[in-house]
Design a protein around this nucleic acid. Sequence first.
DNA 1: CTTGACCCTGTAGTAAACTTTAAGGTTTAG
DNA 2: CTAAACCTTAAAGTTTACTACAGGGTCAAG
Lengths: 134, 134
Amino acid sequence: MSYLRIGDLSKRTQVNNETLRFYETKGLLEEPSRSDAGYRLYNESVVTRVNFIVRAKKLGFSLKEIMELLSLRVDRQDSTCGDVKAVAEKKLEDIEEKIFELNRMKTALDRITLACCGGEESAVHCTILNALEV
Amino acid sequence: MSYLRIGDLSKRTQVNNETLRFYETKGLLEEPSRSDAGYRLYNESVVTRVNFIVRAKKLGFSLKEIMELLSLRVDRQDSTCGDVKAVAEKKLEDIEEKIFELNRMKTALDRITLACCGGEESAVHCTILNALEV
DNA sequence: CTTGACCCTGTAGTAAACTTTAAGGTTTAG
DNA sequence: CTAAACCTTAAAGTTTACTACAGGGTCAAG
């Protein structure tokens, strides 16, 4: 099990060095161990963590919210199972709302691609807003 | 059918005046008609448009992407049905990927709230990353 | 006929999330 | 052993998306 240097982690995750260091200052990534020369040495598990951050960002979560998601854990001294459950359930609500809205949008886009491209005179109604309203 | 002034639109959508004017400069909202005094006069349909912008933003779409979604329409001179279909299908892919990722995250959170809070010794594994990996 | 709640434009300021630059030290391939 | 390709920190700059401010005009109620 060899360590990854920041450049290796960057290549593996497609997130650049500066951004990785930036995430460290923001607390999204733990401070890794260092080589004698002071180089950051990451272990494999950080790849998963960085990939999670990237995916969550694409879903519209802010770095602060991602922090909250990442720090959801039952094994910390300062949080009980109940605390974790409460936070997780709040996040679940957010996620379910996002899924609901995305499905609405998906339906609208489906309508545009499938229905609106049929006739000639119906084309005037073919905007995402019109498709959403139905 | 009376017109809405910017303050009315702001109250209806919970988006403040400055932001509405900002969206106008960015092309997300069309330039509305004006009163003799130069006040913006919106019609009802703008409410839907603003609400769409707000929802799309929560889903992680940038203003530029929202522009693309809003300008998807078959009735413009410069776009054919095929163009619209191509753009809509690209957006559909984005949306389906988002839904997929959200479902993954939802499953992970469900695991945290339901499974992990059972026993005592299993608690060390109860992070979102561990829950996602399974 | 004035006071307060609106509206206007233009410009400047802010916060989040990077991204670049400067000025250096380290590692590795030839 | 040296040159390219790494790495370090600290600080400044950029982009996106607002948000506030300055300095003014409009309008309806009392």
